[in-house]
């Protein structure tokens, strides 16, 4: 069994997103276009209140 004290967040390799959420100016700068990257930036910004996301089984309703 996993011991309670061992299940805190394990160390994950040092990695930071290409744009951190804290780097809003850059996200804002790229979100104005009509390409996939701009769309992704808009999606990230609009999901700021639900940053973790939930896996969904069906493609149509997730952005």
């Amino acid at each position: 069994m996993v011991k309670a004290e061992t299940i805190s967040e394990p160390p994950v390799a040092v990695w930071s997103p290409l744009v951190d959420l804290s780097d809003r100016p850059l996200l804002d700068a790229i979100q104005g276009g009509d390409d996939a990257l701009a769309r992704a930036a808009r999606r990230v910004i609009s999901a700021l209140d639900d940053p973790d996301g939930i896996i969904s089984a069906f493609q149509s309703f997730t952005s």
Binding site: P17, L18, V19, A40, D52, G53, I55, S56, T62
Partner: peptide, 8 residues
């Protein structure tokens, strides 16, 4: 890559 989450 932009720091968001996945839905799949």
């Amino acid at each position: 890559l932009l720091g968001g989450a996945s839905g799949s």
